Simulated assay, not measured.
Amino acid sequence: MMGEFDSIRPYADHEVRAVLDRLLGDSTFLGMLTRFRFPRLAGPLGWLLKPLIAHRLRQQVAGIASVAALQDRIELYVDRTLESATDGVSYSGLEQLKPGAPYLFLANHRDIVMDPAIVNYAVYHAGLPTPRIAIGDNLLQRPFVSDLMRLNKSFIVHRSLTGRREKLAAFQLLSAYINHSIRVDGQSVWIAQAEGRAKDGDDRTDSAILKMFHMSRKDEPFAHVLSSLNLIPVSISYEYDPCDQAKARELSIRASSGSYEKAPGEDDASIALGITGYKGRVHVHFGAQVTSGFEDAKQLAALMDRHILGGYRLFPVHHLAYAQWEERDAELAVPALEHQFTADELQSARSEWQRRLDACPVEQQPWLIRQYAMPVRNYYRVKAGLPL
């Protein structure tokens, strides 16, 4: 029997084995893994390496017949990736999440794969069930990517639809699925606060996403529906963004020419760099559950912004960029760097920041500075109770 949500939902335990077997026979997937593991040898020796990698994978996933077992196996790789690409992940606010309660995690969005992976990491290590993850279909161009993501508790957000009626139907289904996941299945959900990454460092909640949560329960008051979803604001802070140069380039081109065309494979490159690139320290803050103080989507978006921006962890690099930013707010009381960080921290931040600036073409530098400076302005405006 076809279920209402079959076109978008994650795979269930009974489907895991068949999907894994399909992946092990997918030449494109094995080719990507070969290039990832052996970048120099993949071209000339790909024909030889592919079957070896398939064999090794088959051994690693032998006996896996559930999503939880697969996540336990994946977790080892996530831990290893975070160890090699960060100077440590810290988190706060997890103690207020009740075991067994499902939540709707609404998070700022900086990195395509690592944002939900790091939230998963925090939740998993706290001994809580990992959330289902909303992922845009624009990132699922290849069947194997879709299979991989849906195996790992991801569900699909149809963004590439153009017709108004199709879009409306897709949002209706998405709304029903998120409500069903939390209220019927008792499963948490992670979703970004806006479509696409905040490339200029300005994390803002799109009220259209909040309206979408309400769409499938239109006959109930907005405030009642949203408070029934156990809404938790999540702030993810990276000390350094591996994709910062690419974002500065895109914003600079957009500002000078009015538009920006992505090159083929650009999303893939962003994903790979976002996973493996150096991030410095990473902090995830889980805010208090938001249950009141709003009547409509606009008011709730403003409230979520205050929670998410106020929960942001600022690192020395953010302050260094803010000091160079032409748009900084002279009225804001931002404490001196020396009062907040050690001399060693500041020294290493200064050299890393200078290295990033030097690598950035002069005309793109204002956009690089803006990415790192914006969170300082937002954080201190929230602290001072000023409008954002």
Rank of each mutant, 00 (worst) to 15 (best):
H14C: 14
H14K: 08
V16P: 01
R17A: 12
R17D: 09
A18Y: 09
A18I: 12
V19R: 01
L20S: 04
L20N: 07
R22A: 13
L23E: 03
L23Q: 01
L23S: 02
L24A: 07
G25S: 09
T28V: 11
L30K: 00
L30P: 02
L30F: 03
G31A: 09
G31K: 01
M32Y: 12
L33Y: 04
L33F: 05
T34D: 01
T34Q: 01
T34F: 03
R35A: 06
R35P: 03
F36E: 15
F36H: 15
R37K: 12
R37D: 07
F38T: 08
P39F: 13
R40M: 14
L41M: 14
L41Q: 13
A42W: 04
P44L: 11
P44S: 12
L45E: 11
G46Y: 13
G46I: 08
L48Q: 08
L49P: 01
L49I: 10
K50F: 04
K50G: 04
K50C: 11
P51M: 15
P51Q: 14
L52A: 13
L52N: 02
A54W: 01
A54M: 04
A54D: 00
H55Y: 14
L57D: 02
Q59R: 15
Q60S: 15
V61D: 01
A62T: 06
G63H: 03
S66E: 05
V67R: 02
V67P: 03
V67S: 07
A69S: 13
L70N: 02
L70C: 12
Q71K: 15
Q71F: 09
R73N: 09
I74Q: 04
E75P: 03
L76P: 07
L76I: 11
Y77Q: 08
D79F: 09
R80V: 14
R80C: 14
T81H: 06
L82C: 11
L82N: 02
